[in-house]
Amino acid sequence: MASTTDMAPTRSTTATPARRAANGPRRAAARTTAAARAAASREDDLSAQVQQLQDDLKSIASTLASLAEGKVNDAQSMAKREVKNVAKAGQHVLEDAQDEFGQLEKQIKDTIREKPLTAVAGAIALGFVLAVVSR
């Protein structure tokens, strides 16, 4: 009988050219599939990163909007305070002017009471001047 070594010669660990040719498409397909998975994984990573950036930009925009709103509110409150201060100052000036005119009116009345003939003569002279000017 034949020995085992005669029936099955020792196998080589290196593949024969025919065997390599048969395994080549499988390996190429496996490489292509692995490359496709890697590309899909990279696309998923990029999509996740883009989504994260969009979320960050939205967050930044809302933060800036709230800061701007705060600044606008501060400016409005400062403007309202200034308007109140200007209104108070204007009221004081108006009151001072009314006081001055009140004092002037009192002086004129006192002068008319003290010197009625001079006041009548002054009124006639003022009327004459106005009549000449208006012609």
Score class of each variant (00 low, 15 high):
A21H: 09
Q49S: 03
Q49C: 03
H92R: 10
I124D: 01
Q107G: 12
S62K: 05
D44R: 07
S47L: 06
R135C: 04
G24F: 13
I60W: 07
D55H: 13
A61E: 12
R26N: 15
V129N: 14
R135T: 06
G24P: 06
T14E: 13
R37A: 00
E82M: 06
R19S: 11
D6W: 11
F128R: 11
K84C: 04
P17C: 06
T13G: 15
N23I: 13
V83L: 11
T63A: 03
G24E: 14
N85S: 03
A89F: 07
A34N: 12
S66H: 00
G24W: 10
E105G: 03
K88F: 04
A131Q: 10
S3M: 14
K115N: 05
A125G: 02
Q52C: 08
V120F: 03
R42W: 01
V129R: 13
M78W: 12
V93R: 05
R31E: 10
A121S: 04
F128Y: 13
A35E: 09
T33Y: 08
M7H: 14
D6G: 07
I112E: 00
P17G: 06
V129Q: 09
Q91V: 03
Q103T: 10
E114C: 08
I124K: 02
K71D: 09
A87C: 07
A123Q: 04
A123N: 02
D45N: 05
A36V: 00
